[in-house]
Design a protein around this nucleic acid. Structure first.
Lengths: 231, 231
DNA sequence: CAGAATAATATGTGCAGACATAATACGCAT
DNA sequence: ATGCGTATTATGTCTGCACATATTATTCTG
């Protein structure tokens, strides 16, 4: 008998090893918590902690009464951390700069109205450019709902980007993100300094605070941008 | 005094509410676990569970002895679940189809060799098309390391995509993903049925099992594709 | 006063036991 | 057989307690 596995991280490691080595093949039912606890010489709570962690990582499927089985299709989850643009730029060791292009309180076009469900209300439309070492990095096109972001109308966004101001002053409870590829229009090409029709990476994000829309932002990144994540 | 908050999800909810309502503003130090436990009328372990969950979500920063404080910059983490393509297609209610374009054991070009660190070894190169309702959905270009995927050389991949076969037969311990925008070459345009130079969404993924490379795959999605995620 | 040794403190983790809950299996009545 | 109620079972969670560990504050010493 090998020496006891008494902490949850060791248990997790051993579980991962067995899954990886196919000792517990995909789809197989694994021993229950109590049995594993006996085998490892630790408390059931410890096994529970470990199995819960592995299940959160997507490698195990757990159901009450039915037991725990190895996931058939370990859904590869990549967590992208969408940081503030300034930080993203500075993390790459570049000098960050920001320029406001436009700021206007208007009624948004139908698609935006429909998504944000703001009806006839006027929203604050902000367009800005983010630079890394004086080279255009991303083009921001944002709609802000004053009802969801109190105080936003007093902000000029001359020097602080809406990106940062909102993060600090406006709480949110949820949202969604869409990533896509976009062909640069001539205006975008000029602003981002690339050829018209160039393939650009686009990120569109809607943010909500409960039921009220906070903001919708489209970020168009300069040509060559790639978003990285780990598995 | 409000009624006791005795389970960790209720504690979590209350903590989130306080953060959201700025009762605990960004950067503030919150009461320690023991005090919160007394206030909520539950055990410290319960508070711990709740705070740990909130911290994992990125809204709290915890350090021993220093205490727990509200994150200054709640890094928005979006977890993309990269499913098997077949499943992704079928989930959209479309009929999935697959066609192998090429399969060859060759020494990969320098960039691939460099990333996978496979030296002079020959890798299996597989190119295939995925269809949704008979329309091209994604173009797969994959390099597989036979040393990291035993038995792969016996597979023809005529009917089963490498995507699925690998998932079922080859364990992995880690990897990385890059998302980007790519301008369609004429060959790609023809295969995916779009205009040359169209902006396409690209996903490149490297997978490892310990220190040995398993596979590197590039997926080029048809025009208009968007990857969705929630916050 | 500087630097090292020591104390204090908040989180991290483990344990044993208990009850809650969901899902399945089984047995009984029709 | 068929359907329903009940028993069983594995996971989910809470509690109270203990000790571990990282980090900061304080005190001691030269």
């Amino acid at each position: 008998m090998t020496k006891d596995i008494r902490n949850w991280q060791a248990v997790q490691q051993e579980v991962l090893r067995r899954i990886n080595a196919r000792e517990w093949p995909p789809g197989a039912l694994i021993p229950n918590e109590a049995d594993l606890a006996t085998e490892f010489g630790c408390a059931r709570a410890t096994v529970n902690r470990a199995l819960r962690a592995v299940a959160e990582a997507g490698l195990l499927d757990r159901k009450r009464r039915a037991g725990t089985r190895v996931a058939l299709q370990p859904v590869a989850r990549a967590t992208l951390s969408i940081a503030v643009i300034r930080q993203e730029v500075e993390d790459k060791g570049a000098r960050y700069d920001y320029r406001l292009l436009a700021r206007k309180l208007v009624r948004p076009p139908a698609p935006v109205r429909r998504v944000l469900k703001t009806g006839k209300a006027a929203l604050l439309h902000v367009r800005a450019l983010h630079f890394a070492d004086d080279v255009a990095y991303a083009l921001e096109d944002r709609w802000i709902n004053p009802a969801g972001a109190p105080g936003v109308l007093d902000q000029s966004f001359d020097t602080t980007s809406a990106n940062e101001w909102l993060l600090e002053h406006t709480p949110y409870t949820g949202g969604d993100i869409a990533l896509s590829a976009h062909s640069a229009t001539s205006a975008e090409a000029q602003e981002l300094g690339c050829a018209e029709g160039a393939a650009l990476f686009a990120l569109t994000r809607n943010t909500w605070n409960g039921d009220t829309a906070v903001t919708r932002v489209s970020l168009l990144f300069a040509h060559g941008y790639a978003m990285q994540a780990d598995l």
